[in-house]
Amino acid sequence: MDFENKTILNNKNITLLQVKNLKVYFYLEEGILKAVDDVSFDIGRKKVLGIVGESGCGKSVTAQSILRIVPHPGRTVEGEILLHQNGNLVDLARLNPSGREIRAIRGKEIAMIFQEPMTSLSPIHTIGNQIMEAVLLHRDISQSEARELTLEMLYKVGISNPHQRIDEYSYQLSGGLRQRAMIAMALSCNPSLLIADEPTTALDVTVQAQILELMKELQREFGMSIIYITHNLGVIAEISDEVLVMYLGKAIEHANIDEIFHNPLHPYTIGLLKSIPKVGKKARTRLEAIKGIVPPPLDLPRGCRFYQRCREAKEGICNVDNPSLIEVTKGHRVSCFLYK
């Protein structure tokens, strides 16, 4: 207990957000879906944390639970989400999800951008209206000042003719432009943390690269931390400082970017890395795929969740107990019985 408090104090200046033992469950008619099951991680100031995993592994839900916007049957059952806010510690998990405190943090301290630029903007309001709304909500400025700021933001995210675009509707913009507008909206209040939930997945590859470049640039300029969620390891390599690998609601490996790519420990991470096509690889070699499919997330069997698909699985160990996330080398944590 004492020890923990000390680390928090020591980390005061470098840590922005700590997630501890987070559990988010969805109470469905068919049973309890453990979307996020005992996940912990930290993120430092001005750092980029990448969260990787297949669809349905709980990475988006983790992000949503930080903002407390998990959709209806889902509930944050346990855990702490500690936000370091100029010397104060706020546990977001304790706040009322529709209360004043969390609303003051949403959009101001922590902003979020989403996967689908097509649907994440309202079809019947202008871009400007939607960005200005965020600005006016969190900053004490006038309508005209907000408009000026919005124009400036649109310019900063690389929209070439902001004076025209500000009064346009989302259907008049291309996918890339929409995502740029979303970024402008998210950064308009200068947040200390930006959560990007697969922001480039739905875009063309070339546009993807542009947006990624833009985000790196803006991070340098605004100095915010980023949680970048994706299933694309290439994107992760491009932008992250640290990586958290998730599988079926569990964090299975957490390390800095070099460690993950050069010294992966968990069989799942190893499998993921092998399944990426690489330049320079011998032609005609097959890409390795991870065998099997993700088991249905309801009523998971006992033991390691990766057991059925794991090459290294040991019967009697892996299918009996659930491995916990332990630190193997400094800053490299993994949850697998191979490393004890």
Binding site: I69, R103, F114, E116, A134
Partner: peptide, 27 residues
């Protein structure tokens, strides 16, 4: 109500009632 733009608006920090009438109800 299930659409993404509602979540966007919520993530902005809008109050639930304001949000409801400005976005999904209008649409």
């Amino acid at each position: 109500l299930r659409k993404q733009y509602v979540i966007t608006a919520r993530a902005k920090g809008l109050e639930e009632r304001t949000l409801l009438f400005k976005y999904p109800v209008r649409v």
